[in-house]
């Protein structure tokens, strides 16, 4: 029973956050570009889905994860967290990186043009990039912040909610691989993720600390 629930959770996570986006990617008529560009796209897309998965791999989903060893879950949360934070922080640079290998506008000029474009999607992107940086830094230097763990956890949660909300809008607005199925998947998953944390804060039912 215990193992089957664990398996069930694992498979649900893999299906929702990995198989489904890949399936949509494969079945849709997105233009197929060079291997480098597609790799970068899949990496970024994957990082975003894992970021949403992080909400479900936290104390917020404790009641769903009671068959798992929380310490293991949190360990994975940390490992995945640092990886995806790294990818997402690099993501603006990854967009322009292929220009190093092909004719066109210079990568540095492309980058300047990118970050100086004042459309909603770009501004959201810049704000959420900074939030991501903040989340990463406050996680790395948690011990040096001199705040209590519970306060940090609250801070981490609030930053994450703000981040994922902004990031979801940013992705839907600017994503290269956004179509109707992808849009719904991202919307549903991000709303669930936010709802899960909000539930934790407003109806402290799942916290048995």
């Amino acid at each position: 029973m215990k193992n089957s629930i664990k398996n069930y959770n694992k498979w649900a996570a893999i299906l929702l956050f990995f198989a489904l986006p890949i399936l949509i990617y494969v079945l849709s008529d997105f233009p197929r570009r060079s291997i480098l560009k597609e790799t970068i796209s899949i990496l970024t897309l994957g990082a975003f889905f894992v970021t949403m998965l992080q909400f479900f791999m936290s104390r917020a989903a404790k009641d769903k994860l009671k068959e798992h060893r929380m310490a293991t879950v949190i360990k994975w949360h940390k490992v995945l967290g640092y990886i995806v934070a790294g990818i997402l922080l690099l993501h603006p640079f990854l967009i322009i990186a292929p220009r190093f290998f092909e004719a066109g506008i210079l990568p540095q000029d492309a980058f300047i043009e990118l970050i100086t474009t004042s459309t909603q999607g770009v501004i959201l992107g810049i704000i959420t990039w900074m939030l991501m940086l903040l989340i990463a830094l406050t996680s790395i230097f948690r011990d040096k912040l001199g705040i209590r763990y519970k306060v940090w956890r609250m801070l981490h949660g609030i930053l994450s909610i703000t981040f994922i909300t902004g990031a979801a809008f940013h992705v839907i607005e600017l994503g290269r691989h956004i179509n109707i199925p992808m849009l719904w998947l991202i919307s549903v998953l991000s709303i669930l993720a936010v709802a899960l944390l909000l539930k934790l804060y407003f109806f402290k039912t799942s916290i048995k600390a």
Binding site: S118, T119, Q120, I123, L124, T165, G166, F169, I172, E173, I178, L183, S187, I191, V194
Partner: peptide
Amino acid sequence: RREFIATAGATAGFAALASMGLY
């Protein structure tokens, strides 16, 4: 996409973001 965002945003309570209208 903007229409979608407006709808989704309203549902989630973030309609303000969608109506920033920076374009």
